[in-house]
C-alpha cells in the first residue's frame, strides 16, 4: 500500500479562545479529488491556509509526498508542487491575463534574476501561458488587464495561474464562487479532465459539483472533521445531516 500524497495529522490552530482548527487529520491519495464541505465559518479556508503554508498551525504536521512540510513557507511548497487557488481573488490587477499566467510559468522556468531582456518577448513563456488560458476557456482574453475582467473570468484566470505552477496537488478554495452557469460548467469539466493528472483538495459550496466530482468527502464543522468517506457514505451520515440542519439549500443537495 503506497503512502498518501498528503497526510495531515493532528492539525490545530487557535486565535485566543477561538479554535479554528481542532485536531484535523486527513489523508489524500494520489489521483483523488477530496472535497471538504461544511457550513460557513467551519474553518475551511483556514485549513487550506495551513495546508498551503500561508498560516503556521499551532500543532500537528503536514506531510506532502513523504516529506514533512509543516515548517516550509508557501513559496517552497509551491515549488514542490503543492499549489492553491484563492477564494478572494489575489490576481495581479494591473497585469494582463497573459502576464498573470506567464509570471507563474516564469517562476519555474529558469532564473528570474534576468534584468535586460523584456519578459514579454520570451515566446516560450507566452506560448505556455496561452495554453493554460485556453484550458480554462480564456482564449482571446489574454490581452485584458486582470482587474477589468468579469468576476467569472477572474475565477477562470485564477485557475489558469494555479495550473501554470504545474501542481501535483492543488488546493482549490471555492473555485466556483460567483461564477455564472456557463463558466461553472466549464470549470467543472476542467476539474473532471484534470482529475487524471492532478490530485485535488476542493472546498466548495456547490453540492452538485462536489458530489459529481469528489472521490472522497470530509465534513468540517467548527474546525473539526465530523465525517469522512465516499460521497454516498457522507450523504447518509446522521451527524452530517445534523450539522447542516437549517441550511436549506444544502440539505436539499444532501437529500
Amino acid at each position: 500500500m503506497s503512502q498518501p500524497l498528503l497526510r495531515v495529522e493532528g492539525l490545530s490552530k487557535a486565535y485566543g479562545a477561538l479554535k479554528v482548527t481542532q485536531n484535523v487529520s486527513l489523508d489524500v491519495d494520489e489521483g483523488q479529488l477530496h472535497a471538504i464541505i461544511g457550513p460557513n465559518g467551519a474553518g475551511k479556508t483556514t485549513l487550506i491556509a495551513q495546508l498551503s503554508g500561508q498560516l503556521r498551525p499551532d500543532s500537528g504536521t503536514v506531510v506532502y509526498a513523504g516529506e514533512d512540510v509543516t515548517r516550509l513557507d508557501m513559496a517552497s511548497r509551491v515549488q514542490k508542487g503543492l499549489a492553491r487557488s484563492f477564494q478572494i481573488t489575489t490576481l495581479l490587477a494591473g497585469f494582463t491575463a497573459l502576464e498573470n499566467v506567464a509570471l507563474a510559468v516564469q517562476a519555474r522556468a529558469g532564473s528570474s534574476f534576468r534584468f535586460f531582456r523584456p519578459a514579454a518577448t520570451e515566446q516560450a513563456l507566452n506560448d505556455e501561458a496561452m495554453q493554460y488560458l485556453a484550458d480554462v476557456g480564456l482564449a482571446g482574453r489574454e490581452g485584458r488587464v486582470a482587474g477589468s475582467l468579469s468576476h467569472g473570468e477572474k475565477r477562470q484566470l485564477e485557475m489558469a495561474v494555479a495550473l501554470a505552477t504545474q501542481p501535483r496537488l492543488l488546493l482549490l478554495d471555492e473555485p466556483l464562487a460567483g461564477t455564472g452557469h456557463e463558466e461553472a460548467a466549464q470549470l467543472i469539466a476542467l476539474f473532471d479532465t484534470l482529475k487524471s493528472r492532478v490530485t485535488m483538495v476542493l472546498i466548495e459550496h456547490d453540492m452538485n459539483a462536489v458530489f459529481a466530482l469528489a472521490d472522497r468527502v470530509s465534513v468540517l464543522v467548527y474546525g473539526q472533521i465530523v465525517a469522512s468517506g465516499t460521497p454516498a457514505e457522507v450523504r447518509a451520515d446522521a451527524k452530517v445531516r445534523a450539522a447542516y440542519l437549517g441550511e436549506e439549500e444544502v440539505s436539499d443537495a444532501l437529500g
Binding site: 508557501m74 513559496a75 509551491v78 489575489t90 495581479l92 495561474v161
Partner: peptide, 10 residues
Amino acid sequence: ESALRMQAIG
C-alpha cells in the same frame, strides 16, 4: 501588486 500572489506561484 500582491506579495501573497507571488508566494502562491512560487
